[in-house]
């Protein structure tokens, strides 16, 4: 089992051209290879911006992000699950998964779809899928590449409870089996308590890390009492 890369994130400042105050400031963190890190904070604080910087999409910031020593924009593509499914509407579900990268054959795409329970929907177009299915198809695309780095932007938002449980299980199984380095952005304490080894709490204006909590393994299969403890711990730091 190959372990994902380690990251060094150092963002001195990220400011959007049309905003007076910077969005992020003084964000420094080292992410261990193969870890699951949750970045927790309220909506609109800059979590997605942070993820876009890590993915190498947003290069307009002062500071640096390295992935196994390489600048983020030059590193191997991460598996990225955007907040919206962002499936290409003109491609079928399996073709969408195949767009993940050169190495993603039809077989690999089908395997990723099977993993997310969508094997029977491979030939449908995105508009023919429900919202939850679209989210799972997007997850299949993020997983198909077997990327060392997985970036998940609010993966459980607006999903019904049973589907969230399925997604928790799926993401936990991916973390256990493939060992990627995972960064999960969420505003839900529950997501962080269930899946993460480490929680970075973002707050303030500009946003910065206000708490850095380590949670013990195993992930996901935590008993209720442990989960409650973690929830209180995280909420206390939030």
């Amino acid at each position: 089992m190959a372990t994902g890369p380690g990251l060094i994130i150092s963002i001195e400042e990220k400011r959007y051209a049309d905003s007076v105050a910077p969005t992020l400031s003084g964000f420094k963190a080292e992410i261990a290879p193969g870890s699951v890190t949750a970045i927790l904070g309220p909506s609109g604080i800059g979590k997605s911006t942070l993820l876009r910087i890590i993915a190498g999409i947003d290069r307009d910031f002062s500071g640096h992000v390295t992935i196994d020593g390489q600048p983020a924009a030059e590193a191997a593509p991460p598996g990225f699950l955007f907040q919206d499914p962002r499936l290409l509407p003109w491609l079928t579900t399996s073709d969408n998964v195949r767009t993940a990268g050169k190495g993603v054959s039809t077989e690999k795409a089908m395997a990723a779809l099977a993993r997310t329970g969508l094997a029977d929907h491979a030939n449908l177009y995105p508009h023919q899928l429900s919202g939850g299915m679209q989210r799972r198809a997007a997850l299949a695309r993020a997983l198909a590449l077997n990327a060392g780095l997985l970036l998940l932007d609010e993966p459980f938002v607006s999903l019904d409870r049973s589907l969230v449980e399925e997604m928790y299980e799926l993401i936990a199984s991916v973390a256990a089996a493939d060992g990627p380095t995972m960064i999960l952005v969420t505003h839900m304490t529950e997501d962080a308590a269930r899946l993460a080894d480490r929680v970075l709490v973002l707050s303030g204006t500009p946003a910065h890390i206000t708490a850095d909590l380590a949670l013990s393994k195993p992930r996901y299969q935590r008993d209720r009492a442990t989960l409650d403890t973690y929830r209180q711990l995280i909420e206390g730091a939030n």
Partner: peptide, 24 residues
């Protein structure tokens, strides 16, 4: 513009962007 972000995240070369995003 979201699809351009997707292409950037996946490191698609220009020809692939043209075929998968621009032309459709």
């Amino acid at each position: 513009p979201e699809f351009d972000e997707l292409a950037l995240a996946m490191r698609w070369p220009p020809a692939k962007r043209l075929r998968l995003i621009f032309l459709p």
